[in-house]
Nucleic acid binder design. Sequence first.
DNA 1: ACTCGAGCTTAACGTATGTTGGGAGCCTCC
DNA 2: GGAGGCTCCCAACATACGTTAAGCTCGAGT
Lengths: 246, 246
Amino acid sequence: MTRSISPNDLLIRRLQSIHTVSKEEIRALRDLPLEIASLGPGHDIVRMGERPTQCCVVIEGFTCIYKLTSDGGRQIMAIHVPGDIPDIQSLHLGVMDFGLAPISSCTVGYIPHEKIQQVCDNYPRLGVALWRETLIDAAIYRDWMLNIGQCEAFGRVAHLVCELVIRLKAVGLTEGDSFKFPVTQANLADAFGISSVHMSRVYGMLAQQGLLKVTRTHVTVLDWDELQEAGDFDPTYLHLERNTPA
Amino acid sequence: MTRSISPNDLLIRRLQSIHTVSKEEIRALRDLPLEIASLGPGHDIVRMGERPTQCCVVIEGFTCIYKLTSDGGRQIMAIHVPGDIPDIQSLHLGVMDFGLAPISSCTVGYIPHEKIQQVCDNYPRLGVALWRETLIDAAIYRDWMLNIGQCEAFGRVAHLVCELVIRLKAVGLTEGDSFKFPVTQANLADAFGISSVHMSRVYGMLAQQGLLKVTRTHVTVLDWDELQEAGDFDPTYLHLERNTPA
DNA sequence: ACTCGAGCTTAACGTATGTTGGGAGCCTCC
DNA sequence: GGAGGCTCCCAACATACGTTAAGCTCGAGT
């Protein structure tokens, strides 16, 4: 268990992992007011079509971005780890074109748009860091699309696990070769564009081939090299400035 | 045939379609130096892994963003129309995590990063417009992912045609219900994550059901309502400020 | 006008994945 | 400590799509 980290520290860690941040800028970030909230899955954070006036920072647990088709299909297009600002785009795109929801019980912090805007005005380099953050979100979308469009389900799952390991390491939230991941297979199926039945099949195959061990709450990587190979994984697209902190 | 439009005007039209642009800002955009180049398909504009020092504006024809899997699969994840800046992210993400290539013969204009940076510094609202542009790129990725992950090939194709019509209208490049689109089915197949054989099947179905007419060089929409229905299309995600100019 | 090649179409057959349905494990709340 | 409800798992069957391979069309070049 990681000892108590201030919510703002996670955000700072995240930005540090993709951009240089000065002492003064760190102070400005630490002063951002965060209104904390605890949420369970099934309770949307922001809904499609809304016009939010604040952004949300993930503090604990996992959230996701999703869209629905008119006939009930749901595609999850991004999974967020602590430190991420999932709806930072709302700063400059008025209307939400997607929904944001927890996929595990989680706590988030809200920051009013105006406060973020002030920080951008006073510290232009932080503005650039946030712009860069949105560009990396897009880079992750691109990779996810390659995954969904060109790879079989087996590889898609391997790929996501690789990505999560790297991103969690960047904010110091892995526990050796495993990490907490209390996400149901039905949710994951929606992320990979497959059925939950097939999701179960694939998890079974990954376990059988000794790449992964999965429980309801944790994922453990058993063979990192093989997993990367299977997932055709190359972390360039994450645009991290440096690697793991610990 | 549209009468000669200055290359910069297309860029201006595009930015106007997503953001308010003042007279003075228009002047600044018009003064941007564009180094024009003509390219045929198969000749990359920027390659994965490179660190460009300039951005490219599409002036005529179509370009695309793509990524490759290690076993030779290619996923096209975005198609650009005149006025777009396909690699604007390179302003703040040093390394390219994707390739950029023409998918028809086309002409593009290059602008050095430093010139764009100057414009952003001198006209902060233009900086915001460009940020917004990158956010809309991401919104398009999201929609494309929903499409690929949750819809059948038939709907995917219908959806893209709808999207292209709207985006081309926004820069004034449709001809009634049809538009020039000299893109091979093999390329389109890579965009939809299907085989070229299946691409042909789907085009056939769309024509047979009277939604679309396709030639090697042009696409004609025969039934806009049905096409939107089939493609589950809602243009919100394009975040256009107003609709068609003409 | 003929050739040639790239792109398109069609058919036959194989497979990854979807769907339905049933049953087993495991929390949670009386 | 049952009862009910989520999850997960498994089996049987259905299908959209991939693969291969063969013709066909059309436009470019001579």
